[in-house]
């Protein structure tokens, strides 16, 4: 029997924000995957900590200065990030462009700090298991920082080359969502790397 056409979807919009958009679900899926990686790596940190006293084995925790600078800047970056997110939701082209450019610059600054942060850990990855897990956690977070920075850079370049449609604004909003993840995921890692060794000393 021939099917009966009971409705027409041609008047529906062709892009939307947040949970109405397919890409948002994809971003969420990857956040869940990478969040699991962070949780498991954190678990490995505690597992190794229980097998080694003192912690750190040579009693010298990482220097506080650069790690804390990074943390402060990372948290402050949430202000332009939220602003860019709102601009994207409101489909304001100029503000979105400014927000993206700002986020690219902040990301760059964060990466520079991170480069030096690796040198103030006071341990190498091949010294002992403590060094291995500390480097692993910082490396994992850096991978996310760099990945999201490249994504932000691409969107910034694109936004300055073209006018944006709703689907692009939605991409920008999803990028802001991912940045929230990169920022929030840093806080427990910061505590693990910089404060747990100080509490255990």
């Amino acid at each position: 029997m021939k099917p009966r056409i009971v409705g027409d979807v041609s008047s529906l919009p062709d892009a939307a924000f947040s949970h109405r958009s397919l890409i948002w679900w994809g971003v969420l899926g990857f956040i869940l995957i990478e969040g699991t990686v962070f949780v498991l790596a954190g678990g490995a940190y505690f597992f190794l900590m229980n097998h080694s006293t003192p912690w750190p084995p040579h009693r010298v925790p990482p220097e506080l200065l650069l790690g804390t600078c990074f943390t402060v800047l990372m948290m402050l970056s949430e202000i332009p990030n939220v602003w860019a997110d709102r601009a994207a939701h409101g489909e304001h082209l100029r503000q979105t462009r400014i927000g993206l450019a700002l986020m690219t610059l902040i990301g760059l600054a964060l990466m520079v700090i991170r480069y030096f942060e690796f040198q103030t850990l006071n341990v190498s990855w091949d010294d002992n298991a403590y060094g291995s897990i500390v480097w692993a956690l910082l490396f994992l977070h850096t991978v996310h920082l760099v990945t999201d920075w490249v994504d932000t850079l691409v969107l910034t370049v694109f936004a300055h080359m073209h006018d944006l449609e709703r689907t692009h604004f939605s991409d920008v909003a999803d990028n802001c969502l991912y940045w929230h993840f990169v920022a929030i995921a840093w806080l427990p890692i910061y505590a693990l790397l910089y404060w747990v060794p100080r509490m255990m000393k």
């Binding site: 029997m1 099917p3 009966r4 027409d8 979807v9 041609s10």
Partner: peptide, 10 residues
Amino acid sequence: EPRQVLEGLS
């Protein structure tokens, strides 16, 4: 029957 469907996707 009949099966119901929607139209309107390009």
